[in-house]
Design a protein around this nucleic acid. Sequence first.
DNA 1: CCTTTTAACTTGTTCAAACAAGTTTGTTTC
DNA 2: GAAACAAACTTGTTTGAACAAGTTAAAAGG
Lengths: 249, 249
Amino acid sequence: MPKAKYEQLYQILKEKIESGTYPPQEMLPSEHTLIAELGCSRNTLRRAIGELVRVGYVQTMQGKGVRSIYEPSRQTTFTLGTIETFSESAERNQQRGASKVLLFSSVTADWQLAEKTGFAEGTPLFYTQRLHYLNGRPLIFNHSYFRQDVAQGLTREIAEQSIYRYLETELHISIINSKRVVTVEKATALDLQHLDMGDCNCLAVVSSQTYNSDGVMFEYTQSRHHPNFFRFQDNAVRRSSAYGRPEEK
Amino acid sequence: MPKAKYEQLYQILKEKIESGTYPPQEMLPSEHTLIAELGCSRNTLRRAIGELVRVGYVQTMQGKGVRSIYEPSRQTTFTLGTIETFSESAERNQQRGASKVLLFSSVTADWQLAEKTGFAEGTPLFYTQRLHYLNGRPLIFNHSYFRQDVAQGLTREIAEQSIYRYLETELHISIINSKRVVTVEKATALDLQHLDMGDCNCLAVVSSQTYNSDGVMFEYTQSRHHPNFFRFQDNAVRRSSAYGRPEEK
DNA sequence: CCTTTTAACTTGTTCAAACAAGTTTGTTTC
DNA sequence: GAAACAAACTTGTTTGAACAAGTTAAAAGG
């Protein structure tokens, strides 16, 4: 599926790590070896390895080598650094996803909404509330705002299916990137009404601003997650010893 | 400070974007122009731009160019993809940070602890509870476990100052990467006792496993954050249109 | 005037080469 | 035997080049 060679190499190596060809704590073959093995240039191989570093599969040490630090099977609900719709995520985790549209309307951004979403005041927007189910349980309450001049012709019927499919295949909008912020908020009456969260009175909130290829932010979505089913993964790399160089010799 | 050229270029461009030389929605000069301007090769420049993409400062479109999508001043408490200690983060945000050690002890990982932290059962560990203050308010409650054979000689006195400074400058341990997971949990009695969280009964929990250059996970830390002061930022990039190629013509 | 084609841009990918820098191992030297 | 040195690894950075692919605007054609 992926056309780029470095993506293919990344998939191959990822597969080998997951399947135990390169078990945890073990060193991978050196770049020189892998180049001969995979038939690629050093740059392309290193690009693939760089991806593996980013997702926390390996660590690299100058002069020493590349070590696998993969630990299998931590159930992932949310992957980082890549945009995924709810239905895509559900499918990847092999679970039954369903959605219900609670509200679909047109609004104009007032001062308060503009402040919250980042849209300019007075922008005409579509506003929709959707509830996402996983295995029959309501887990995510979505508030989404779409710029009307970008998401032209959006209807409640489309929202019942998949908004992104409509935007990408019908309107030929290319989604480029999405800025996301994770916070924790007090549950509102609306949250409690729909999410059935027991004795928890807070939930995980993922606010995202999504941009198209024209550089315009056309979507603001606030995903309010059931706290017991929220999980956000990340791998951080220490750039340089923050405490200056340890004295030599 | 950064030795690598691409890091310098990244800083230069980041600066220009923040200062308004390349204002939001505006296109950056083409690679060709920037190469001449900055005196570097195309690959090095592209590496710097790649970093800007990852932090959500710009978006690139094949055939069109690079557009600034920087939006100034959303106060950041947590940056993503890079390991930062509490004191470093506090300093970056120009706020007064302070810490208090509530507990320092030696423990051995039993079955339950091994399951939670990822250490092998029977591993001798240092266990410390620390409370982090920002501007006088207690905001973060840290539970940290360190492998005794790696963090040799760790004492309560060192924990009062900075554990990482000790590990890096005294023990010459190089911290490589850290796997982190963000979840939301019910507050325990201990949390409520120390964090003063009003009527919220949940908090944001960042669990992290940190690895050194020998590939051994030597630290497990669970950071329990006051919900009102927790913020986790991310920028996601859509890899390829998930719905197949839109039909031509 | 409008459409089509072409050319000149843009960014994306891949290769090759050279050097820098860190680590390991073997060798020499005392 | 122990320390110092040197060679042979490893990954990290930088440069240059070529081609692919997407976009834009000028040129050509009707």
